[in-house]
């Protein structure tokens, strides 16, 4: 695949976006070409690192401030629920993690699409980094849900559609983490994991609508796109703060890991290049050294 190698060398050399595909024949082609160029502008590692460094504080600090404010508000200043009492406060950490478990996987699926169709090198690295963070958050979502379910429902776990579909999401994350690291040749791992990432996206609408399609022990969503929230504003505020804060925090952690990953791959490339120059044989640089 000459095309792929071309992208990779461009990525490693950091000399700018790859060339366009000449003439445009039809709508899809021009669409893919245009979007491809747009994405590949950020494939340049130098530009990504510069922009990432600039973006990082704008994610990290608001994330910290909003999360802490939401947690303090939720723990100490929001009212107790009329039927759940103080246990309702678990909501302020459970709901944001549940939202992030799904949207993190959505991010993974988008990276998979970028990887499969446009062979975007940064999307592969992002998929590697989103996996562990998303899996941890999903684990937290399941655990806090259990801690909420035991005092309220009277059970740690039931096999209803909502809980089971989120558990499936957790296993999808674990599978993705394992698969993307399973091959000696990273490119094959990226390809296989991207297919899993896209296929697993089928679980997302199932999670979302499980509480409407089937009878579940889990209650339906309180906040919907169409209807008014069935929640008092005094509870909506801290929930909104923690949700926004956790989301920014997720983005900040993924961005930091991604920047580190790009730097690490650059270090590897430079080391490999130095080794290649030093060795008298001057053998062609192996693909393995690429990110």
């Amino acid at each position: 695949m000459g095309e792929d190698r071309n992208f990779l060398t461009v990525f490693i050399a950091g000399t700018g976006a790859p060339g366009t595909d000449g003439s445009t024949l039809n709508a899809t082609q021009s669409l893919t070409a245009r979007t491809g160029n747009l994405f590949h502008r950020y494939a340049n590692p130098g530009r990504f690192l510069r922009m990432g460094a600039k973006l990082q504080p704008w994610l990290t600090w608001p994330a910290l401030v909003l999360s802490l404010a939401g947690i303090v508000w939720g723990l100490f200043f929001s009212p107790a629920d009329w039927q759940q009492g103080d246990s309702v406060r678990i909501m302020y950490v459970h709901v944001p993690t549940a939202w992030l478990a799904s949207s993190g996987y959505m991010g993974l699926a988008v990276c998979s699409l970028l990887s499969l169709v446009w062979r975007h090198p940064l999307a592969d690295l992002a998929a590697v980094e989103i996996g562990p963070v998303g899996a941890s958050i999903t684990a937290v979502c399941l655990a806090t849900g259990s801690l909420w379910g035991k005092p309220m429902w009277g059970t740690w776990w039931v096999w209803d559609a909502r809980l089971t579909s989120v558990l499936v999401l957790f296993f999808l994350y674990l599978g993705h983490i394992a698969l993307i690291r399973a091959f000696d040749e990273p490119q094959r791992g990226y390809r296989a994991a991207a297919i899993l990432g896209l296929a697993g996206a089928v679980d997302l609408p199932i999670i979302k609508f499980s509480v409407q399609w089937w009878n579940t022990l889990h209650q339906p969503d309180s906040i919907t796109v169409t209807g008014a929230p069935t929640m008092s504003t005094s509870m909506l505020w801290p929930l909104g703060l923690t949700t926004l804060g956790f989301t920014l925090g997720f983005a900040a952690i993924v961005l930091a890991r991604l920047r580190a990953s790009v730097m690490e791959s650059r270090v590897r490339t430079i080391l490999a290049a130095n080794r290649g120059r030093q060795s008298a044989a001057a053998a062609p640089q192996p693909d393995r050294a690429t990110p």
Partner: peptide, 22 residues
């Protein structure tokens, strides 16, 4: 009807995992 241990465990777990990741 307070379930303090459950609330503390949920918040502790969330903050702990967030701290480890960060």
């Amino acid at each position: 009807m307070t379930h303090l241990p459950y609330i503390v465990a949920a918040y502790g777990l969330t903050l702990g995992v967030a701290a480890i990741l960060s």
